[in-house]
Amino acid sequence: MSVQLNHTIVPARDRDATAAFFVEVLGLKPAPVYGPFRVVSLGNDVSLDVVQAGDDLPSQHYAFLVGEDEFDQIWGRIKERGLTYYADPHHQRRGQINTNDGGRGLYWSDPNGHNLEILTVPYGGWKQG
């Protein structure tokens, strides 16, 4: 078996609200409780295990590769919620999306200050062959 990411832990000030934010904005199934975590399952058998972590959180980056239809749906939910989004990871190009590598992408923040990204084409484009 090749090495694959199975899960990552997402520290949160409010575990339940953060898991609900991911589920609602990304259009995912509800996140069940497993021990101290709310488990947000992604489509490629990877999960974001959201854990209560207190107030002092390091900002992390989470990028989600999505299809064109999912991009439009997520972008729509971001706009419906009045969330600020950017075309770049440093949040300089407010209210814009990027077209890097022939796809579309955007960045926004979750309630904990984590930098979230959706993109329709992976960095460097799709592998040939």
Rank of each mutant, 00 (worst) to 15 (best):
N115S: 15
D56G: 12
G105K: 11
Y123P: 14
S2Y: 13
K127S: 15
L116G: 05
D101T: 06
L5Q: 00
N98W: 02
N115H: 12
V121C: 08
D88W: 06
R93G: 08
S47A: 11
P32E: 08
P89E: 08
V39A: 01
Q60A: 13
Q60F: 04
A63V: 07
G54V: 11
V33E: 15
H7P: 04
G76H: 08
N115L: 05
K79P: 07
T99H: 14
D88A: 11
A31I: 08
F22P: 10
D14S: 00
G103K: 11
L28D: 06
L57D: 00
G95Q: 10
V39R: 05
P89G: 12
I97D: 02
V3Q: 15
L106T: 13
Q92A: 13
V40C: 03
D88T: 03
R77S: 04
E24A: 14
G113T: 01
A31Q: 02
S41E: 14
W126C: 06
D14W: 01
V33G: 07
R13I: 08
A20N: 14
Q73S: 13
N44S: 14
S2K: 14
E70W: 11
T99K: 01
H91G: 13
I9K: 07
N98I: 06
K127L: 15
L116P: 03
P111M: 05
T120N: 07
L26R: 00
A31H: 06
A12N: 09
Y62P: 09
N112E: 04
L65F: 07
I78W: 09
V39D: 08
Q92N: 12
G125W: 07
Q92P: 02
H114C: 10
Q92H: 03
P122C: 10
D45P: 05
D49Q: 12
S41G: 07
Y85V: 01
G125N: 06
G113Y: 07
Q4F: 10
L48M: 14
N112Q: 01
A17G: 09
F37H: 03
L116I: 11
D88M: 03
V23Q: 10
F22Y: 15
G95R: 12
N112K: 05
L28Q: 09
S109T: 13
G105L: 02
Y107P: 13
R13F: 04
V46Q: 04
T8I: 15
G67L: 02
V51Q: 08
Q52P: 04
T8W: 12
I97R: 09
I97W: 04
L42A: 05
T8A: 15
V66R: 01
V33K: 15
D16M: 09
V66I: 12
T8V: 15
G82A: 10
W75C: 14
G95H: 04
I9Y: 06
A12Y: 06
H91F: 15
G129E: 05
